[in-house]
């Protein structure tokens, strides 16, 4: 789409800003901008105010790098959580996913990515030092690695393991295997093979 055909430079600017968002092309951007243009003024101001306030006021938790409104996020400051457990995740999205399971009562540590030199991410780009400091200075009983199950995730797991290997903290990783409710015959060979190798004792329930 040729943006020079837009009747207003102001419109063009707005479209350009919107199309910087992930998954938004020029056409969608124009649709959104026109929608906003036709809305009551107060709605639009509330929208821009919400974005501005979020950007200004949101903090990153100094302990686990989760999103927070205070120095410490709501998880790190919750006295009911088990402070001796750290679950290492790539991003805030994974915290949301694990929280929705209601199965985990420990704390988190957001790495901020996984090692992939091709994408310009090395260990220095990750929140590794703060993780090491937490393990050194706090009473940690277990570190749970909850990264992606692809090669980059494995590389990062292995890197963390090597960095922490001298410590006495046990390191675990999420189980890999058949999904709950899956039919065996439709499970791919790699997953099924790994499930067999990593089978667990059966206790009758």
């Amino acid at each position: 789409m040729d943006l020079h055909q837009l009747p207003s430079r102001l419109l063009e600017n707005a479209v350009n800003e919107f199309s910087k968002l992930p998954g938004i092309g020029k056409k969608t951007a124009l649709r959104l901008v026109l929608h906003i243009l036709h809305q009551p003024k107060e709605d639009t101001l509330a929208f821009s105010h919400a974005i501005e306030k979020m950007k200004n006021d949101i903090k990153i938790c100094k302990k686990c790098h989760n999103i927070s409104e205070e120095e410490l996020c709501s998880i790190c400051s919750n006295p009911n959580r088990d402070e001796s457990l750290i679950c290492v995740v790539e991003s805030i999205k994974e915290i949301i996913a694990i929280e929705s399971t209601s199965q985990y009562k420990g704390l988190y540590h957001v790495l901020g990515g996984r090692i992939s030199p091709m994408d310009g991410i090395g260990p220095k780009e990750l929140n590794m030092e703060t993780l090491e400091n937490r393990i050194k200075n706090e009473e940690i009983s277990e570190v749970i690695l909850a990264l992606s199950t692809n090669m980059e995730g494995d590389t990062t797991n292995f890197y963390i393991y090597r960095r922490l290997a001298d410590g006495k903290v046990p390191i675990t990783t999420l189980a890999r295997g058949i999904s709950v409710g899956d039919e065996l015959e439709y499970t791919d060979e790699i997953t099924l093979g790994k499930s067999l190798i990593n089978r667990i004792p059966y206790h009758g329930k």
Binding site: I115, P117, G122, P123, D154, T155, Y159, R162
Partner: peptide, 10 residues
């Protein structure tokens, strides 16, 4: 060096 070590290993 550390990261190249990782890939050597893999």
């Amino acid at each position: 060096v550390d990261v190249v070590d990782l890939y050597d290993n893999q």
